[in-house]
Amino acid sequence: MRVLVRALSLLAVLGAGLAGCGEADTPRARATPPTAPSAAAPSTPQAPPTPRETLIAGHYRPLWPFSGPGEVAAWQRAYQADGREAWHLDAARTAIAFTRDFLGFTEIDQAVKTVRDGEHARVHVGFRSEEGPRPLVAAVVHLMRYGSGRNAPWEVVGTDDTTLTLTKPGYGATVGSPLTVGGRITGVDESIRIEVRHPGSATPVGERCCLGAGGENAAWSAKVSFTAEPGRTLTVVASTGGHVAAVERFAVTGVSLPS
């Protein structure tokens, strides 16, 4: 009898253990939060930023050199590590790099004047001419701080137009190809070149040359076709010259393509 009681007790213990294993498959047990993945596990790919996320101060289009906050953060990390590309912290140097390296206006290599106003900077860029001792101003480049922290870099967001204006398409407009471009100009025997550009491309993604124009605050307009990936921010450029330099005046605006 004593042996039979011990056998029954052993069976009861085994039965309880089996019942405990079965609870792990119940809905209550599966609702327990999973263990965090190890550091070696691959991270989930991040979706590209939406057009709204790339805006500066909720309005301004990032034209150059950065296309979004992820690129800004990557540069900040590199700069903190080894001081890489410190010119991003200088508004004048950024404006000159924009005109000379991105737009390809190699003669425009002078920062004639820089006006700072908080997070904004306006750099008057120009070129040397044989007609006088002072550089001639070709455009006023508008820049803003992009990102946060002490090392927020400068970003080109447009130009302040004067005797050559680029008012169509409107700043920040969503556009398609072909694109109608227009504005006003004061001058004689002008020849306007239109380009559509985006960072990462060494050449324009669309171009129209050349539109004869001139007069006193005279209207000008033309159409340009282009090819670019959806969702991009594009820089539309109008330039004129040929009297004392290849490019004597230019204006830019920022637009975007639908996603």
Rank of each mutant, 00 (worst) to 15 (best):
T159I: 08
P135E: 09
R61T: 07
V140H: 09
N151G: 02
T162P: 00
R232D: 05
R100F: 01
T32G: 02
A91P: 00
T163V: 12
A222P: 01
K113W: 09
I96W: 01
T163H: 14
V255M: 13
L143H: 10
G176D: 08
V5K: 10
E207P: 00
G187N: 13
A36I: 05
R193A: 12
P42I: 02
G231H: 06
P51E: 01
L11D: 02
S256I: 01
P49R: 11
G158N: 10
P51G: 00
D82V: 07
E107M: 12
K223N: 05
G104W: 05
P230T: 06
T114H: 01
P62W: 02
E119R: 13
T163D: 15
V115S: 07
A7Q: 08
W87S: 12
A95E: 03
A19C: 05
D189V: 04
T180K: 14
A219I: 00
L179S: 10
R52Y: 04
L143G: 05
T99Q: 11
R84E: 08
T26F: 03
G215E: 11
P199I: 06
R61K: 11
I185M: 11
L179C: 10
T114Q: 08
I56K: 12
V205F: 03
L89V: 06
W154P: 01
A245V: 09
V156L: 02
A92N: 03
V224F: 00
V112K: 03
S43W: 07
S67Q: 15
G147K: 04
A246M: 05
V123S: 01
G254Y: 06
